[in-house]
């Protein structure tokens, strides 16, 4: 290949990597900058001294550990419940033909298109009437419902990849449908279950607006709500905010590495999921 073109290509790649990583790099950079250097070296590419003080103070002197735990509880529960429900629904879509199927699929697709914010007020009223405001379980229920359509399509695509012959063979070998599921289909769909778990976790971990609406007590704040409250209250303690941000990034990155192989399937099967 033409050397000028090759150079251009590598420059373009470097440009993309730089653009993608820069904000995250900056987050990390400010987080490890000692307080007294933030303003003097605020715009330098790397601080002259490094410290983990900000992390230590975030963990010991603020409520971030509690926010973090709340978020973890909400995201993990949402991911687990959603994946179970979506696996059952995806299995039905993949293996059965029945009359209501096109209608149910259409409704699920529509729920991915209309502005979710449209239902934020009614949901608030319903949750308030049930006395579930400021509870993590209300968030889990709402997030589970939001993620079911997408997770169902994702699980369906995984089930579609497992030949129907296999469970028919198992049923002839003496399994009930449930036994065939447990002994043959389930072990084969473990990667799919894992990927769905990862996608839903990532989505639940970053949800902000509904959490903001439904949670106002400090004890039950999830990470995004807590961080935003912190930002508006102590908007000058940059180091701590960024340290908290870096910590919020960690679970996302871990799950991202975990689901990377399934990104294409995940992004195309829901077709609309961010």
């Amino acid at each position: 290949m033409n050397p000028a073109l090759t150079t251009g290509k590598y420059l373009a790649i470097a440009g993309y990597v730089g653009f993608a990583m820069f904000p995250l790099f900056w987050l990390l950079k400010i987080a490890v900058t000692p307080d007294k250097l933030v303003f003097t070296e605020g715009t330098a590419l790397w601080p002259s001294a490094m410290t983990l003080d900000n992390f230590r103070r975030v963990l010991t002197q603020t409520d971030f550990l509690s926010y973090f735990t709340n978020s973890l509880i909400v995201s993990l529960s949402t991911a687990a419940v959603t994946t179970m429900i979506a696996a059952a629904a995806g299995y039905a879509f993949s293996r059965f033909h029945f009359r209501g199927k096109p209608v149910i699929i259409a409704v699920m697709l529509v729920t991915q298109m209309f502005p979710l914010l449209m239902i934020i007020a009614p949901i608030y009223s319903i949750i308030a009437k049930l006395g579930l405001l400021n509870s993590l379980s209300s968030l889990i229920i709402v997030y589970t419902a939001f993620n079911i359509p997408f997770a169902t399509f994702l699980m369906q695509s995984f089930f579609d990849g497992i030949p129907g012959d296999l469970e028919e063979a198992a049923m002839i070998d003496g399994c009930s449908r449930f036994q065939a599921l447990r002994k043959v289909i389930f072990p084969l769909t473990l990667p799919g279950l894992g990927a769905t778990l990862g996608f839903v976790f990532t989505a639940a971990w970053s949800e902000l607006l509904f959490a903001l609406m439904l949670i106002s007590s400090n004890d039950t704040m999830t990470f995004p709500v807590g961080l935003l409250t912190f930002v508006s209250k102590f908007s000058v303690d940059w180091g701590q905010m960024m340290a908290a941000g870096v910590m919020a990034l960690v679970p996302s990155c871990l799950f991202f590495l975990f689901i990377q192989r399934y990104l294409v399937q995940g992004l195309t099967s829901g077709a609309v999921k961010g």
Binding site: P163, D165, L166, E168, A169, A170, M171, I172, D173, G174, C175, S176, V184
Partner: peptide, 17 residues
């Protein structure tokens, strides 16, 4: 149900687990 018919089947795709 298939499991109670006491038959065996060889599939075109073999359907090995």
């Amino acid at each position: 149900a298939p499991r109670d018919r006491d038959i065996a089947m060889v599939f075109q795709s073999y359907a090995l687990y």
